[in-house]
Computed example of a mutant assay.
Amino acid sequence: MVSSATPKTRLLLVDDEARLTELLKMELEVEGYEVDVAADGATGLIRARTEPSPDLIVLDWNLPDFSGVDICQRIRSSAITTPILMLTGHDDVADRVTALDAGVDDYLVKPFSIEELMARLRAMQRRASTFSAAAGDGQHPETLQVGDLVMNTSTRDESRSGQLIQLSVKEYELLNFLMRGQGKVLERTEIMHGVWGENFYGDDNLLDVYIRYLRQKIESSERPALIHTVRGVGFILREERQLETS
């Protein structure tokens, strides 16, 4: 079998279902991952924060001490950017939004196939590698600006007309993607792949939910609209006056 991961790829699996973790650990090691297992949230959090840190984290929603959402929030509050895949039995849009807002990179509903889990892990690795490479070669400018909307990608601060805007992790990633493509019509699939990953199979209603969240935070009656819907296609981010004069 050709390994899909190098032996140096460290994966932290946080789940209290012994039979499932035993099976996943065996399958992941066959694929070339170095697997560390934690049976509760507190242990998982400690290992996520301990050097050398894992390259990937697979985190169950239901843990005996904390929820996976709580653990993810604590990991992200420690400025740890390791890609996180959440395993859960929750499958409605509200639960997905809760997990993604906490900083989860992808979301897999139980029961799932090993093949799909592996595909999602590979996609998260590729996405993380692509982002790191682009950031290292100067493709990602430190400051993005559309009209009076400004994003500092170094500090992850956003403001409009000088007023700071508080965004969740996924809101930031979506706005970042839209700002990098400013002035261009971005198709729904393109946005979903860019923000949620190419192997994200979730309901694309999530995109509409997050677009609504962003509009509520960056637009108002006193501020011109920036996010415009292109019916049947997707969205475009640009100043309203540009839209009117083009």
Score class of each variant (00 low, 15 high):
100 L>H: 03
100 L>V: 04
100 L>P: 00
101 D>E: 13
101 D>P: 00
101 D>L: 05
101 D>V: 04
102 A>D: 03
102 A>K: 01
102 A>F: 02
102 A>V: 06
102 A>T: 03
103 G>Y: 01
103 G>A: 06
105 D>A: 09
107 Y>G: 00
107 Y>H: 07
107 Y>C: 01
108 L>H: 06
108 L>K: 03
108 L>Q: 04
109 V>Y: 07
109 V>T: 13
109 V>S: 04
109 V>E: 03
110 K>V: 05
110 K>A: 06
110 K>Q: 08
110 K>H: 09
110 K>D: 00
111 P>N: 10
111 P>G: 07
111 P>M: 09
111 P>S: 09
111 P>C: 09
113 S>Y: 09
113 S>R: 14
113 S>G: 14
113 S>I: 03
115 E>A: 15
115 E>V: 14
115 E>I: 11
116 E>I: 12
116 E>K: 15
116 E>C: 09
116 E>Q: 15
117 L>E: 04
117 L>W: 10
118 M>P: 01
119 A>E: 10
119 A>P: 02
119 A>H: 08
120 R>C: 02
120 R>P: 00
120 R>F: 01
120 R>N: 04
121 L>H: 01
122 R>F: 01
122 R>E: 10
122 R>K: 15
122 R>L: 09
123 A>P: 02
123 A>C: 07
123 A>D: 06
123 A>H: 01
124 M>A: 10
124 M>G: 01
124 M>S: 05
126 R>A: 07
127 R>I: 00
127 R>P: 00
127 R>Q: 12
128 A>G: 05
129 S>D: 12
129 S>N: 15
130 T>M: 12
130 T>P: 00
130 T>Q: 13
130 T>L: 15
132 S>L: 09
132 S>A: 15
132 S>E: 08
133 A>H: 12
133 A>S: 14
134 A>H: 14
134 A>S: 12
134 A>T: 07
135 A>H: 13
135 A>R: 15
135 A>Y: 12
136 G>M: 07
136 G>F: 11
